[in-house]
Design a protein around this nucleic acid. Structure first.
Lengths: 198, 198
DNA sequence: TTTATAAGTAAATAAACATTTACTTATATT
DNA sequence: AATATAAGTAAATGTTTATTTACTTATAAA
């Protein structure tokens, strides 16, 4: 039996992300993707059931999976609160800054009903992305270190500025603006940390 | 001469927003829109040059224009800093909570290259949305009330949690979850305010 | 080496798409 | 009341779309 060519599978995913980032999800077509990846449209259907299946797997596995891994790299849920938040901030910011195509699809994950639904269902069925962060927050609430808000609220206060700052890092022609220096990033991290300390 | 029917124009916009919120921007078609609005496809082209023109005007005029107006309602750039931030938070949160369809397109504005580019170009050519907020920040930096960060950074720290909290307000089946009470909202607003006070 | 089989291709298909054509209608002006 | 004209409609246009059909190819196992 002829074996699957894994390079082709990776090419499909990489180039799909590129098209989505550059032209938008609404302009990704199977034929455009096949042509750009130098394969036949039929090949995509060997690896994915249909277009929706491709988009969902791209989002959940390729993008969110890698993002979660990068954010949690060397993160210790039992570390000091400020240290933990700092690690998560730096990991998250640098990953998104260096993976602009993944960042674009993450943004679509908040807009597109298809992707948004897939994300919610995955979290319900297979357990939350970022579970160690929940554990981290839980412990610090119980220990009286931080304010006792619902986790969703804590996560909004602690982490939502990161996405905005990454957005700010690039201007609309995708050239780096360099407003967001390491110094500013760390200062922002301190601001959000202080805000929810008791 | 037969006059333009403004109700039809409004129907196009309202129903376009509804389809985008419910099925996604990538599933909005001119024929679907015409059918849902009970008009001929040709009628859309009397009012808009083409699909891109429709989307951009929907986003910039209908959605961002109304959002800006709602956020700035009764906002005084010369008010006390904490008071000003509170007003902006409550205005923003309540508008988005009560205008779910507009909220969906605002999210797409951060994903879609078409909408994102239109937004940036509008801000450059015709002056920023939310200019009074810039004035407000400028004054409070100069007065030494808040930290001297770039405006983009201040806005990320002060306002980006709002969008996340509105998202949290609805679950993925669009039923209100009611986690975000008025009490929590005000507490969050205080947290972000304190964080950037000097 | 042969062979079975899934991987892969090029081209086709039917449906859906944005936009236009050819026509009808409503009304402000005359 | 007649008429000029833009607003509006229904149906058609040519193109693009997701997906499939009919075929070829590479290789693991025999």
């Amino acid at each position: 039996m002829r074996p699957k060519n894994l390079e082709k599978e990776q090419a499909i995913r990489t180039i799909a992300l590129q098209i989505i980032a550059e032209e938008g999800l609404e302009n990704l077509t199977m034929q455009k993707l096949a042509k750009a990846a130098n394969i036949s449209p039929r090949t995509i259907y060997i690896k994915y059931e249909n277009k929706e299946d491709l988009l969902i797997k791209l989002f959940i596995e390729e993008v969110l999976g890698a993002y979660e891994k990068a954010v949690l790299e060397n993160f210790d849920p039992n570390a000091d609160f400020a240290e933990g938040v700092k690690k998560l901030w730096l990991n998250g910011f640098h990953y998104l800054k260096n993976n602009r195509h993944a960042f674009a699809l993450i943004q679509y994950g908040k807009s597109s009903p298809l992707l948004n639904k897939a994300y919610q269902e995955k979290n319900i069925k297979e357990g939350d992305f970022f579970a160690p962060i929940h554990q981290f927050l839980e412990y610090n609430i119980a220990a009286g270190v931080i304010k006792d808000f619902p986790h969703e609220v804590l996560r909004a206060l602690l982490f939502s500025p990161i996405i905005e700052l990454v957005n700010e890092y690039f201007d609309y022609m995708d050239r780096p603006k360099q407003i967001i220096t390491e110094e500013i990033l760390l200062a922002c991290c301190e601001v959000v940390t202080k805000g929810i300390l008791k």
